[in-house]
Design a protein around this nucleic acid. Sequence first.
DNA 1: TTGTAGGCGTTATCAC
DNA 2: GTGATAACGCCTACAA
Lengths: 348, 348
Amino acid sequence: MPEPRSGSRPTLEAVAALAGVSRATVSRVVNGGDGVRPHLADRVQTAIQELGYIPNHAARTLVTRRTGAVAVIIPEPEARIFSDPFFSRQIRGISKELTAHDTQLVLLLVEDLCDYDRIERYLAGGHVDGALAFSLHTDDPLPAIADRIGMPMVYGGRPGWTAGPGEDDRVTYVDADNRGGARDAVRHLLAQGRRRIAHICGPLDQTSAADRLSGYRDVLPDAGCELVASGDFTAAGGARAMAELLDRAPSIDAVFAGNDLMATGALRVLRERGRAVPAEVAVVGFDDAEPVAESADPPLTTVRQDIEGMGRMMARLLMERLGDGRGGGRSVPGPVITQTALVQRASG
Amino acid sequence: MPEPRSGSRPTLEAVAALAGVSRATVSRVVNGGDGVRPHLADRVQTAIQELGYIPNHAARTLVTRRTGAVAVIIPEPEARIFSDPFFSRQIRGISKELTAHDTQLVLLLVEDLCDYDRIERYLAGGHVDGALAFSLHTDDPLPAIADRIGMPMVYGGRPGWTAGPGEDDRVTYVDADNRGGARDAVRHLLAQGRRRIAHICGPLDQTSAADRLSGYRDVLPDAGCELVASGDFTAAGGARAMAELLDRAPSIDAVFAGNDLMATGALRVLRERGRAVPAEVAVVGFDDAEPVAESADPPLTTVRQDIEGMGRMMARLLMERLGDGRGGGRSVPGPVITQTALVQRASG
DNA sequence: TTGTAGGCGTTATCAC
DNA sequence: GTGATAACGCCTACAA
């Protein structure tokens, strides 16, 4: 049995020789095979099977100028990236969509700012056709780099430099309706008769945090600033913020946390201080990513965003922009804002 | 200002022309530059700067047969992959090490078994120089594929088909001393005077779960089977198992859970049933991955494994095997077993 | 030390 | 329809 030797895989040439045709014909068969007589196509297919031929990626990329790969760039400095299921789910969504387009996911974790040199070389070196990036800060150098080297990008979460949701159509991003979702959460608490509603916000240099705070203020424009405490989107930060709120405003009867992780931190502090949830204090979170919200104690009422769907959408927009096949759609799709939905559970 | 047009980046040829030397000389400078007179090297560097030259990856790969990329293959079926910080940390470790070697990380999430076709094509297509794979089950087709196409592999966690820890030197893997760590945990509980010590094990088709169970039995060979319940490495599974144990053996005074996530589920059930931790029932976990163990309520006593370090080690072994530069070390390093350490906190 | 030339495996443009 | 042939951008003997 002629086992193919590892280390030197069969080439197009070998297939052509075995099938008794030219390289060009084999190439046609491999790439869809229009305009090849079934007779020959079959012979080629057989040869391909027999030799276990698999096209060489580098050679193909060299001539087509397409890599079939996409970078996902994650600013690692915020270590919450992996502890927060948010990113994981989004990556899963991205992965699914890319797989459906036969495109590979190259993960680029950015440890610190000087890594951006490496990132630039990588992106410019033709390793990938486009890139997806998460939760950039206002001063992130990535957009400038992408611009300079002409790399198609799609952002996750509204980038900080845009004027506001839906107000800048030159950049493609996918975001949830953070402001609207926050309004829903606060209105839900109001409808329960809650009157002293506090907010634990995330880091305000991220638009998701800022937009949720805006939503809170939309509904409660007169809320005193003693009712707003800052967290960092982690459980520990949420706990600290909750403790602060209880000290500053002991009479609060509800808390809207900027995400589920902070909400769980808040729940822990409320339990430690003997405040019954939701009887004395209602708690609402944001995200509804497995398994945090559902397995919280008590299970969290929260604002659901379709995180995996947002990931898929990011990938889809990029694919669209890359013109899936050859040349096609060069357009730059505008932002996509996805809807949120309040999910009521036991906490409020 | 001669902005380089995006879409057609400068080539080696262009640099050579601008510097007034041959392509070969430029190539030498780009790749370390031994044996080029400083005089010329400078001129080349200048030209490179001026043109913003960045080597084309595909062309280089085509001739060197090295991609500078490594695949990380994750069998997604177990959805815990991302909800469990274990994987996240390991990926972070891998990423750091790879970055240090100027190597890229290509993430391959495997949704279901038929994806392995795609995986094989990908690996055989010369996209990557080697691959890392996590927590395979006994019947996973990946090892056979890797073997057939001669892809250098390093596994995370002892693969199920190996006889036992350290008994098969033909496969490279990195694992913690799960059995020893489990023994430490149980002995720690014994030393506290606990007498009815239960175990919540993970899915036994994964060696990490099986080895930890073995460690438990090493210390407590006479423990009745009513003291062992199965979880699935998730918090919900841990909760179910805990409930089961309390029903079957109400007198238990300690629980060793196969990982931290299951331990948190156990804590929740114990709290719901009014059993004080650790006064009435002590709980010990396994992993000590942020933020689960530390932010549990009460904080978990647990067996720490250096997860990020294991990830780095996996990447390092693969790099070593690939012979970092040209051709060097072709050896197949044997398994590496890392030590664990008991971390005592409030839960037991 | 430097330059010349051949080839890596594909796709694409032509003739036939 | 099919087959030569020329790129694609780079590395690397080998020759000078």
